[in-house]
Design a protein around this nucleic acid. Sequence first.
DNA 1: GCTCATTTGTTCGTATGTATC
DNA 2: TGATACATACGAACAAATGAG
Lengths: 248, 248
Amino acid sequence: MKAANKGRKGGDPSPIYFNIQREIQKRIETGEWVPGDRIPAERKLAAELGVSLGTMRKAILNLVAEGFLYRVQGKGTIVAGTTMMRENLRYYRFLKEFGGWEAVLKIEHLDTTVIPARGRINGLLKMRADEQLLMLRRRFWSRKKPILYSVSFLPHNLFQGLEEVAKSRIEKIPLYIVIEGMFGLPTLSNQELLGLDLADAEVADVLEIPEKSPILSIELLSFTHRKRPYEFRITHCLTDRGKIHREF
Amino acid sequence: MKAANKGRKGGDPSPIYFNIQREIQKRIETGEWVPGDRIPAERKLAAELGVSLGTMRKAILNLVAEGFLYRVQGKGTIVAGTTMMRENLRYYRFLKEFGGWEAVLKIEHLDTTVIPARGRINGLLKMRADEQLLMLRRRFWSRKKPILYSVSFLPHNLFQGLEEVAKSRIEKIPLYIVIEGMFGLPTLSNQELLGLDLADAEVADVLEIPEKSPILSIELLSFTHRKRPYEFRITHCLTDRGKIHREF
DNA sequence: GCTCATTTGTTCGTATGTATC
DNA sequence: TGATACATACGAACAAATGAG
């Protein structure tokens, strides 16, 4: 082993910058640095961890590319939240045609309740089979007509206090932003299943349509650090007043 | 202006590496380098364009991050095609449940025909109102049952010869790969509109369902370099045999 | 409105490690 | 084995944005 390797721990084949990245990620995941925090200057971090400035820059820039951090010249390096992290994660847009106008949706918070465990959902959220769930129901309006009905399920023990959040706050701010603000959990990835359903009594009632009307249903599973699922959501969509738009 | 700026053209405020990026992109877009080509070594390019090695590396690495190039140590830097560029762009998966099995779809090529202009589609593809279209129809099977019916529209003048491609080839290889191979056009981004439709006579016939059955319809607009649209596709999906899965 | 310390951004240079053919 | 090409790591200097005073 030559001099250039002096900075590495014995036999470790992974590049220094990669170990630095993991170290920074660790400090974010453990909550030492939370979204919005400014982390120490690159020079200070480089000195603290005993690497060159270039190596530290490479590690930081990689994390910026992955969306964990963002930087502002003259200001510093800041831990990113969901909003900053992924333009992608924005809620679906609603429009009638490519290049057309986007519908503005008004959120109505129906209720937030603690409910008993449900087999499938507890499984998806990797909770014990007997843990309680938090259920948050919202309805979205477009021009005085209901267009979306979404029901979110979250582990109750992880989100103590969410049920106390003011209705007005939930109606103004996207749920994932509220969660990030209260609990520091950013959304890092999502999985969804799209399908067709017939409206049951509850859905028909909320969306003000006849029972058994066909509707689009989107099941969404959201993940945070280390691919841990933290929300399961099912959204029932009417699509006659605007289609769902996605870019990728 | 100090000495450090000597490499820049008069008042140009954009960084050198950015201009280098654009230069490389230009050579890809004009077809000077096509997907699969190895571009000159970073040292040679740096010398040719009169910048330092570090600056050239930064430009190339940015293009790698954006998916235009990929690098193999010891081998070289290669112009990427769609497959390499975006894991994302993969065709939808079909499965019944999160974490469940993915259905394997068999492609059936129905036909490829030249058809007259259609107002909306010519508009979306930014073609003149009188230009002909190529229409390519495919049906996808899951376990001996039709599950997807997709109709693609492409500018005929851009894709001369596509209608001659063997049925067997279209049934084995994703359309965007065929197009990239024949015409060197990679898919760089997509936009989609999701909605609910009632099957018309044609769709009902192809999918072997009763007319007016509710189905999921996905309109897809695909873009290549410089955000130029090159394909419009509408896919009609049955979702009772598996839901559409996406990760983002 | 200006100056100054801080912090990131850009550009250059050099040396050495490592994968490919 | 050797030549080629990319990967990692170090160092140095100056530019440009930010915010405090």
